[in-house]
Design a protein around this nucleic acid. Structure first.
Lengths: 130, 130
DNA sequence: TACATAGTGTTATATTATAACAATTTTGCA
DNA sequence: TGCAAAATTGTTATAATATAACACTATGTA
């Protein structure tokens, strides 16, 4: 059953929910939503979320402790993520900007260190809220 | 008492602790450390942390739920923050790079939207751990 | 002085996340 | 095929992070 799409049952249920959502979902919101499907306890949710993050199917918005589906085939298993977050309506969009990704992927600090992964969160007002 | 340095008693105690620390401190670590100074309950800690973040004296490392003192006079009340985080020893450094700040401050997305604030976290291995 | 604003102390509770253990399912490969 | 390793699941309990709500005190400013 797993092989067809490489997601397990719980992972698929939780991914579908996040993927259909227009806004970031929190772990306990997910838990309440999937209880009717037999996922009853936090560890079941967190384990699926961990795996989905690990495989790049979803991202965690750290400043909100919430999860969004990946909309960006270029972010290569979550190594290079950027989001815009509306401070008014809380909407989150994944930013897919090749230049930005390149700039940050190649960034090296004053000691010459490069980093293999980054997460960038922009805050402001979305079009609607402006 | 407040006027001299514009931090209140609890704010000063908690700022001093974070400022002296070589690593990010978590709220409950702070709480345990300052109980001998009379700060006994979580809201006292969180209120001081909120204020210190708001005024740019400290920053929250979102991926770690921990706090560091600001080492960068240029980050203008936390509007533009960047950190490097070692995945091995957990060390965090604030990045102060004028070019990077300029690049991200001026960044506009595909819809032409600019953002008034950002937070960037780089992950990798620090010099010691490499 | 007197008023508004900011800060404090306190109890209780909400929210987010993991530990630990037993069982089952899937997968790779001998 | 069939067996062991790896991944996933189910479950209970609890740890860790954060806020609500309320009464009170200190500070700054007109």
């Amino acid at each position: 059953m797993y092989k067809e799409n490489n997601l397990s049952k719980n992972q698929q249920i939780i991914f579908d929910l996040i993927d259909k959502s227009s806004e970031p979902l929190k772990a306990y919101t997910i838990l309440f939503s999937v209880q009717k499907k037999g996922i009853k306890a936090p560890p079941q949710v967190y384990r699926a979320l961990d795996k989905l993050v690990e495989t790049g199917k979803i991202h965690k918005i750290e400043s909100k402790n919430a999860f969004v589906a990946c909309r960006n085939s270029n972010c290569e298993i979550s190594k290079a993520t950027a989001f815009s977050i509306c401070e008014s309506c809380e909407m989150v969009d994944e930013i897919n900007d090749a230049k930005l990704t390149k700039y940050l992927t190649n960034f090296s600090d004053k000691k010459g260190t490069k980093y293999k992964r980054f997460n960038l969160e922009f805050f402001g007002l979305c079009k609607k809220c402006k």
